[in-house]
């Protein structure tokens, strides 16, 4: 029983950490708080499930979820760079527009995949994969995507992307079109988020128009938790950190639910985690200076 819950939580954590990887790209690499995430997570789920219900190959449906996510990010990027709308507002506009689009894609508020073929049912057919198939497929996906992003960030294009978030004036004077870099980053990010949405929906065998609500905050919480616990001394380490952050975040949520809190309280808990994580560095400094001050008085 317990190990069942533990396994389920880890599997979910792995899938969500694909989303966290996307949030890391915008939030940390591009220094851009992108709220489109709430909409693009659902978009991925909606695209994959409606295609699967319509009889499409689930692998194809999953790939397409990634691409429509790219398009959502592209849209946010164009709003921001070409029409000079602020990052926050560009994200909110995409998120809001996607809410209607997702309902259009699904045709109703939720879709059940019970009994349908998914990437997970396919994978479970492989030898030895009937029990741990979901875990193994999620793990392979996370390791693969983490490695791809890691190598991408060491390429010339990846360096241009990173410096766009670090010092835009400088990299523009070195000949990089920073508008394009922002659009590229947002596009990859939202593709990953939508991909995560399609995994989660196929695993839980349903998609719901509101399943993405609060996803950006969950993503931020995961990024921060991972960075604090694992560290950020290099790009590779930071990527491992945020992936772990995604899993740890799910574990925390599972524990909180075990304590008897209602699932509807989750968003509140997540916000509290983010607030706590955001204020804790200054909070910790205060405590340190306070105790130092008390020691000073004693001496």
């Amino acid at each position: 029983m317990f190990s069942q819950i533990a396994l389920g939580t880890t599997e979910q954590g792995l899938m969500y950490s694909i989303m966290v990887l996307g949030v890391y790209l915008t939030f940390r690499i591009l220094d851009y708080a992108d709220l489109s995430v709430d909409g693009s997570f659902t978009l991925g789920a909606a695209t994959a499930t409606s295609l699967i219900v319509g009889g499409a190959n689930p692998w194809f449906a999953t790939g397409l979820a990634f691409i429509v996510g790219n398009l959502a990010g592209l849209f946010t990027g164009i709003l921001h760079t070409k029409f000079k709308i602020t990052p926050l507002l560009s994200g909110i506009l995409t998120m809001t527009a996607l809410y209607s689009i997702n309902l259009r894609v699904m045709g109703r508020a939720n879709i059940s995949l019970l009994g349908s073929r998914t990437i997970f049912t396919d994978f479970a057919q492989l030898p030895l994969m009937d029990e741990y198939g979901v875990f193994v497929l999620s793990l392979i996906s996370v390791v693969f995507l983490g490695a791809v992003i890691y190598f991408f960030l060491q390429t010339e294009l990846g360096l241009a992307l990173r410096s766009t978030g670090d010092n835009e004036l400088m990299i523009r004077s070195l000949g990089v079109n920073t508008d394009l870099m922002k659009i590229l980053g947002l596009s990859i990010s939202n593709g990953l988020v939508a991909l995560a949405g399609s995994y989660v929906a196929q695993n839980q065998q349903f998609a719901d128009a509101s399943m993405g609500i609060g996803m950006i905050i969950a993503g931020l919480a995961s990024v921060i938790i991972g960075e604090v616990l694992v560290g950020t001394s290099s790009i590779g380490r930071t990527i491992i950190a945020v992936l772990c952050g995604g899993i740890i975040y799910r574990v925390i949520i599972a524990l909180v639910l075990q304590l008897g809190l209602a699932p509807t309280d989750l968003k509140l808990i997540t916000s509290v985690i983010v607030i706590f994580a955001l204020v804790s560095p200054s909070f910790r400094k205060k405590i340190v200076s306070l105790t130092a001050g008390m020691k000073g008085e004693g001496a």
């Binding site: 190598f151 390429t155 010339e156 294009l157 241009a160 070195l174 000949g175 990089v176």
Partner: peptide, 13 residues
Amino acid sequence: MALRRGKTRRLRR
């Protein structure tokens, strides 16, 4: 990044 000033950034290490 400076060595590649003004050049197209490629998808290579």
